[in-house]
Amino acid sequence: MLTVITGGSGSGKSAYAEDTILSYGEGERIYIATMFPFDEESHRRIARHRDMRKDKGFQTIECYTGLHKIEVPAGSYALLECMSNLVANEMYQEGGAGQRTVETVLEGIRRLEAQTARLCVVTNETFSDCQPYDEETRRYQEYLGKINCQMAQMAQTAVEVVYGIPLRLK
């Protein structure tokens, strides 16, 4: 069963997603981390997230590319965070899926959903502002947008979090 959790940057998506997983009760909790630690700022962000979920009983699996290859315990409750990082990794990292990012990621989500009892995916609204993006960034928005739409279609529940307040989209 798939839940998609979206929202802007700093909107409280992560805290809401963790609470959602905890609300399922006792079970094996898996955190699939996709942020690649490439500079000091990303290390800080990762540390902040680790701190948020300590004492919540998550086992962390790092997955920067190749989501379709990972295996998680059958029947577990998994939280994948964040789709926006995974898509950037697949597009730009060596050995990433490149132009096949959308299909590859969606295949990964389908496989993960089949392995887990509950799957929550955190993604990001990167589609509403007025910055003049270059072609490459627009392609990124296109891929992430397509993935978000298709995931939401597969999902039982889709939620937008606005400053910690969940708005149910589906």
């Binding site: 940057s9 700093g10 589609f127 910055q131």
Partner: peptide
């Protein structure tokens, strides 16, 4: 204002 609905600046 709600900000943070774009690509990371």
């Amino acid at each position: 204002n709600e900000v943070g609905y774009g690509v990371v600046p």
